[in-house]
């Protein structure tokens, strides 16, 4: 893929990330517990991480963090960045240890749990130390939401990777 196409492709993925996170904030939250979210935007971040490259995934996450920072304020932006960074780091870490012995589903779940833990750490530093109370709930939520986003990623893979295949032909 040439440079122009790559930039366009990354812009498209970033747009997708942002649209998904806006879409998600429009959905009624189905639990009373703050922080239990689907994490639809993680689908795109994971796709980027698995099939395009690590530095692109980081770039995407930072860009998304900046977008949240501008639209929803500093606290939300920092939370988004901390969650996203820890999520990517954990996935990279697990993948480099287990290589092809770890399944995408487990990677997705680990990423979702890491995302939640990253946010809890940020919340407890910035707002109140009491946030750890939610840790067990957010681990279980990470398992459920990570499975859902993992399955969605598998389903959407042909569509998302179409431009990549097209370019390599």
């Amino acid at each position: 893929m040439n440079r122009t196409k790559y930039i366009t492709y990354m812009a498209m993925l970033l747009t997708l990330t942002i649209v998904l996170s806006i879409f998600e904030s429009m959905l009624p939250s189905f639990t009373a517990i703050p922080g239990v979210k689907l994490g639809l935007a993680n689908i795109v971040v994971m796709f980027t991480l698995f099939f395009i490259g690590r530095k692109y995934a980081f770039a995407l996450n930072i860009a998304k963090g900046i977008f949240v920072l501008i639209t929803r304020g500093a606290v939300a932006g920092i939370l988004s960045l901390c969650g996203g960074m820890l999520s990517i780091l954990v996935i990279i870490f697990l993948h480099s240890i287990f290589k092809e012995r770890i399944s995408y589903l487990l990677l997705s779940i680990s990423g979702a749990i890491a995302h939640n833990i990253g946010q809890i750490m940020a919340v407890s530093v910035m707002l109140n130390a009491y946030a750890y109370m939610y840790l067990p709930v957010l681990i279980v939520s990470g398992v459920v939401m990570g499975s859902i986003t993992g399955i969605l990623l598998k389903t959407l893979l042909p569509v998302l990777s179409y431009p990549l295949k097209e370019a390599n032909r």
Partner: peptide
Amino acid sequence: KNVFFRNKDIIMIGIIIMIAIVLY
């Protein structure tokens, strides 16, 4: 090269949920 799902994933998920319960 990774596969999407292995049967032993269920065991791992079980362990993670156990950890959450113990933490709770």
